[in-house]
Design a protein around this nucleic acid. Structure first.
Lengths: 335, 335
DNA sequence: TTGTAGGCGTTATCAT
DNA sequence: ATGATAACGCCTACAA
């Protein structure tokens, strides 16, 4: 409620009747402190509710224990899992995350970048809004930078992305494992490289199994339910014997399910539907619950943190590192 | 990429051939510095790409320019808008936000709290996962605390919440304005005070207009699509002449729409449907797009920041402050 | 107008 | 085992 100045090491030392140096050692568990002295100091700290000033500590250590998370993801759908993964990897007590939302605005991003650097963050994680290459935030920054989800367009930077090709393969493998053979692929905006990568992976796996893509082609369109619905209608109008749809996103998948139901088809009995993103709120509450490919964003965050931590002492790698996706089966593809 | 030590004020001063004190004054625009000296210093700073160390500055100023955002909201649906509002109010360059996710774990929350305090944040915003009173994080904290979305159970704390009663009234007013008279209310888990508040507001406004709740009672259940569906079926089984449903959440609303469609009813022609939360991803991609009551979370964040800023010099208020909701009309309630 | 000196809270070095 | 003391980078009296 009110403002009483927090106790300093000085206060603790004085109360314990020792010097600040001794108090510091005692509190940090360093050697060369007698057991009794240590106890005295600890007790004094306790009494004063002493909490070390991390700022001052950082000043001398040359490390702040903070990393910046620079995102353009307006809803937090990407940045929150990534943040959680990073927190897990760092250990929340040693490293805190400063979250800055650039809201897709380059000016604001530059602004946040300067602020973060002036706060002397130990490292930076840059999260893009879409999984395509994005402009690098610069080469000669004083701290290591890891790009997550959206890779940097500078090959010298280190980027961590989901392996969308493998994700596409994974999707088809799952559908064939549950016995489907006539699989169509409805996906989103063809200007997204991720759409092509997933489609490419799907084709690879189909070919490997001697199957062909149902519906004659990949249905590119938009990342929306509406596109899922209309593409499905187009697909059904061909009167192909479809028994599964691999959708490029969960939103599309919901549209697909919707259109299938409208046509009197049952999911998964007549047609299995598989989504992508595993956006919990959409996938779990879908009717039936939607199987989906999860991009392991939390792992992405964890690995980003690990790479940063490694870079704190040593050097950072470069290039694009692909991380595997994971399949989350629910009822929409039940056997 | 690599680690070259950032320039310090010392470096700038040396390059400009002045003392650090003069350099400091020049850079901070203080008086008693000759024009030429100032120019020299600025130029030196420019050449060295000098960026002041905010930590060191905070150490002497006694203010860090950081606030902690302690959340339990796993998806960021609440905390991200609140964070954005806070950023707007503070001005992102003066104040940064440390986001910590307690993941609904009291131990982790205490941990984060200690970390934030030891980082000497200037203030704290606590965001709960559900809009019911939550345990206070403590009375005698050294910094001002504002609770957002979920109020503190300690009346001495300052809490900012959405006015759910007014939200309920708003919902009914909108539905009657588009000509509906037989309005039912399907809402979520009755253990949520927000469910009762919204229902209460709805009843108030209905009474004020001389109307009665259709369906005989408020349908409490769960915050899920599934409940929306089954409640709607129950409702329709009564063969009342419903012409609108006010749903307690967007998820419920989607279930309602789904069940209405299954019964051959058209939205909004036969039955208008209004949601609550205005969760963009759900509301906008619904079929038809869902009108919804928005809790103005961004405003909540902005006001939280304002209250904190006011508390930095002066004292913080207490009690629960209710902020108005806003209606976002889409097609599901079109006239 | 400019520079010197002290202090913010901590840690680390080096005497004692 | 303990305690001065010097950093860390910055700001601000106060002196010159």
């Amino acid at each position: 409620m009110t403002a009483k100045r927090p106790a300093t090491l000085h206060d603790v030392a004085r109360l314990a009747g020792v010097s600040v140096a001794t108090a510091s050692k005692a509190l940090n568990g360093r050697r060369h402190v007698s057991t009794t002295t240590r106890a005295d100091v600890l007790q004094a700290a306790e009494r004063l509710a002493y909490s070390p000033n991390t700022l001052a500590r950082g000043l001398v250590a040359g490390r702040t224990g903070m990393v910046g998370l620079l995102t353009s993801d307006l809803e937090g759908r990407l940045s929150i899992p990534i943040l959680m993964g990073a927190e897990d990897a760092f250990g929340a007590d040693r490293t805190s995350v400063l979250l800055c939302d650039a809201r897709g605005d380059a000016v604001r991003e530059g602004h946040h970048l300067r602020t973060l650097l002036s706060r002397r963050v130990d490292g930076l994680i840059v999260v893009g809004a879409r999984p395509d290459p994005r402009p690098s935030i610069g080469r000669d920054l004083p701290v290591p930078v890891v790009y997550a989800y959206a890779p940097s367009d500078d090959p010298e930077d280190l980027s961590l992305v989901s392996d969308n090709v493998a994700g596409g393969r994974l999707a088809i493998r799952h559908l064939t494992e549950v016995g489907r053979r006539r699989i169509a692929h409805i996906t989103g905006d063809p200007s997204y490289s991720a759409a092509h990568d997933r489609a490419h992976g799907a084709r690879q796996e189909l070919a490997a199994q001697g199957l062909e893509l149902a519906g004659d082609r990949v249905y590119f369109g938009a990342w929306s339910e509406e596109w899922g619905r209309s593409a499905t209608r187009m697909l059904l109008a061909r009167h192909d014997a479809i028994d599964a749809v691999f959708a490029g996103s969960d939103q599309i998948a919901r549209g697909v399910i919707d259109a299938l139901h409208s046509s009197g088809l049952e999911v998964p009995r007549d047609v299995a539907v598989l989504g992508f993103d595993n956006w919990e709120i959409l996938a779990a509450s879908s009717q039936p619950p939607l199987s989906s490919v999860d991009m392991n964003l939390k792992t992405l965050g964890r690995v980003a943190a690990e790479r940063l931590a490694a870079a704190f002492d040593g050097k950072l790698g470069s290039g694009v590192e692909q991380l595997p996706c994971r399949l989350v089966p629910r009822e929409s593809t039940a056997a």
